[in-house]
Amino acid sequence: MAINWDFIISVLPLYEKAAWLTLKLAFGGIVASLLIGLLCSIILYQRTKGLKWLVKAYIELSRNTPLLIQLFFLYYGLAKVGVKLSEQTCAVVGLAFLGGSYMAESFRGGIESVSKSQIELGLSIGLSKMQLMRYVILPQAFSVTIPSLGANCIFLLKETSIVGAIAIADLMHVTQDLIGMYYQTFEALLILVIAYLIMILPLSVLLTWLERKVRYAEFGN
């Protein structure tokens, strides 16, 4: 089976542009979801009265609905009731909405991994709740949270494959167009897979290394 190398070379710039767009959107989504997740876990930690339930509801809603529907709702649905967002804004908002709850769960997992006796210890020397967080919980939660956050980042990067559905010229969209227009299916799919491998494989390896390092630190403790 002959691979049409000329075709591949000619469309590489398109793919490159799409890959950068994907990375850009993923980055925006990741940063926003980290902030949302952090905010949510602080609210849950401080047990702020009304907000606590709001945060819990948000987390359940975003974890139990698919990103595709969230995007469609944001892009097509909201537009009809007067809130018109650009495709890229929708993508980032959708990713942030979905990712925020995953990040919040990561932070929560980290906070809960700090043993009760450590917390009682901190309290018994008179630390305030915020001081407890800063000096006792965060440093110890760190090692548990980081791998989890890393996994979420990779997850969000993969989820960007969905944003093509709302007319963003990302990798999936480009592939679909090319298949439709030129019927060079094999070549288009090949570059698609390679593009994702290039983006995600290094991160995955990094994450595995990170997890191993953290596990060593834990046992060292």
Partner: peptide, 11 residues
């Protein structure tokens, strides 16, 4: 785990 599911569906 590395290739997104949508990509697999396309493939």
């Amino acid at each position: 785990r590395i290739i997104p599911i949508l990509v697999w569906l396309f493939l």
